[in-house]
């Protein structure tokens, strides 16, 4: 039995190899952290419900992608149908930060004519002593591209919920305002079950059953 949700958003998680994409998603969807995690080859899929306001649930479909450059020939097919994205870099790996621009360019080309709402995520913030990217410069870069910036740690479960939920809330606001619209042939946003209808039909079934007893 599928839970009731208002909308379904499709999110994509991108960024260089080893920045911790799969670990972040696993922490968010399964609540666990593995010290060693296999590299992702190709694309993987996860899902979870989030409650953005009491009683208002959004279903998230989360696409995990391989970070190695050559896999982009496969992963780029998934940009087009995503409404939101988490663009990760590793705060202890300067190069992964320098590649943020390239990732944005790459998605821009392949998402046309749609757009992806991105949040920039500085991951592995538990390793603050090995930090190679300051919060200030990351915030500046994010602002330059009109993104929010958040620092997370899958290991210590810092801001993982917040990263996904804030992004979901922002997209929800854009949908509510009509800036993002549901479109035929686009999987980014889908409308869910209308709770009242489902509720009443369940009631009917229940009462019928009661009659049979």
């Amino acid at each position: 039995m599928e839970a009731i949700w208002l909308y379904q958003f499709r999110l994509i998680v991108i960024g260089d190899s080893t920045v911790g994409k799969s670990c972040l998603i696993r922490r968010f969807t399964e609540g666990r952290f593995a010290q060693v995690s296999d590299p992702t080859v190709g694309v993987d899929f996860f899902s979870r419900l989030v409650e953005i306001e009491p009683g208002k649930r959004i279903k998230l479909q989360i696409w995990d992608t391989a970070g190695q450059e050559r896999f982009r020939s496969i992963t780029r097919a998934y940009y087009r149908n995503s409404v939101g994205g988490l663009l990760l870099f590793d705060i202890t790996n300067r190069r992964s930060f320098q590649n943020v621009h390239e990732w944005l360019e790459e998605t821009k080309v392949h998402v046309q004519p749609y757009q992806i709402v991105f949040v920039l995520v500085g991951h592995k913030c538990d390793l603050d002593t090995q930090r190679q990217v300051t919060r200030h410069e990351a915030e500046k870069l994010a602002a330059a591209y009109g993104m929010k910036y958040i620092e997370t740690s899958a290991r210590d479960a810092i801001n993982v919920e917040k990263a996904f939920t804030d992004l979901t809330r922002d997209i929800y606001e854009l949908v509510k305002r009509g800036d993002i619209t549901i479109q035929e042939g686009w999987e980014g946003v889908k409308s869910g079950f209308v709770p009242n209808v489902v509720h009443s039909s369940e009631e009917v079934v229940k009462s019928e059953r009661r009659c049979l007893c």
Partner: peptide
């Protein structure tokens, strides 16, 4: 359902069924 085959079989081909 608009599912691309790469989503379900990438690992089969890339890893030759390992794991």
């Amino acid at each position: 359902h608009g599912v691309l085959w790469t989503l379900v079989v990438s690992r089969w081909f890339i890893c030759l069924f390992v794991d």
